[in-house]
């Protein structure tokens, strides 16, 4: 499992590397000492697993994750940060406190390895990270890709396929999941550009729907369409998008 260590302290990285020596399944492909270098390393090395320190100069570990379009599995590390610990607890995230107990590390590594097959890596040719390029050279996010969402104390690692609907709220986008709907600081246009157009459909100016989460389609006034989503939300497609949708479905 390709692993990247992210911690601003050299000795902390060194110690973690030493502790991981006894886990041959963990293959350390690189180290980063802050968020920008981690972002670079993630893009370049495409690790499957991050050991991520929460407190770093400039951006925190959470800040880093929020800016990633696609996140690997993450095991957080922290010395003592009440805020971070609370976030870990309420969000049931995997974390280790420093100095790291080798037994707890072993447990986290085992759990990660056990759960990893559920998210099989993409064929190497298509990019191990799961990102593919479309005709115009842009990276496209697919429904099995994971993103990191944060809203107040709560954090989520969410597979895009679990998102039913993105809804514009001023500068934010509200992400409708089953039961929860955190806000993220992204515009709908930004999201639309990155999402797989075969799965995520821009229904109107303020909503992007997951086509696989559409329960039923109904004719609406003025030749428009209304999509009833899983969970009961109703989305009215704009006139232009209704036409586009009919064409898409008739293919």
């Amino acid at each position: 499992m390709k692993t990247l260590l992210v911690d601003d302290e050299r000795l902390a990285r060194r110690e973690l590397r030493r502790l991981l020596e006894v886990h041959p399944a963990i293959q350390i492909v690189g180290e980063a000492k802050d968020a920008p270098s981690a972002r670079e390393a993630i893009a370049e090395l495409r690790p499957n697993l991050l050991f991520l320190d929460v407190q770093m100069p400039g951006e925190t570990g959470f800040d880093l994750l929020e800016t990633l379009d696609w996140v690997p599995r993450v095991i957080f590390t922290t010395a003592y940060d009440e805020y971070a610990l609370r976030a870990f607890e309420v969000s049931a995230l995997d974390y280790l406190v420093k100095p790291i107990d080798p037994k707890r590390l072993a447990r986290s590594v085992e759990r990660t390895l056990r759960e990893a097959p559920r998210h099989p890596p993409r064929p190497q040719g298509a990019g191990a990270s799961g990102q593919e390029e479309d005709g115009a050279g842009r990276r496209v996010l697919r429904e099995s890709d994971r993103v990191f969402l944060r809203d107040g104390d709560r954090c989520w690692f969410v597979e895009l396929g679990r998102v039913r609907l993105f809804e514009s709220m001023d500068n934010y986008a509200q992400v409708h999941l089953d039961g929860e709907s955190p806000l993220i600081l992204r515009s709908l246009n930004e999201l639309e550009e990155k999402l797989d157009p075969l799965v995520f459909f821009r229904a109107n100016r303020s909503q992007i729907i997951n086509l696989k989460a559409v329960d039923s389609i109904h004719p609406w006034f003025g030749g428009r369409l209304m999509a009833r989503m899983d969970g009961g939300m109703e989305v009215v497609l704009s006139r232009r998008k209704s036409k586009e949708f009919r064409e898409l479905m008739s293919v």
């Binding site: 302290e9 050299r10 000795l11 902390a12 060194r14 110690e15 030493r18 010395a79 003592y80 406190v97 420093k98 100095p99 790291i100």
Partner: peptide
């Protein structure tokens, strides 16, 4: 705790 961690390293 950070100090103890550095010390370990």
């Amino acid at each position: 705790f950070n100090s103890l961690n550095s010390l370990r390293g």
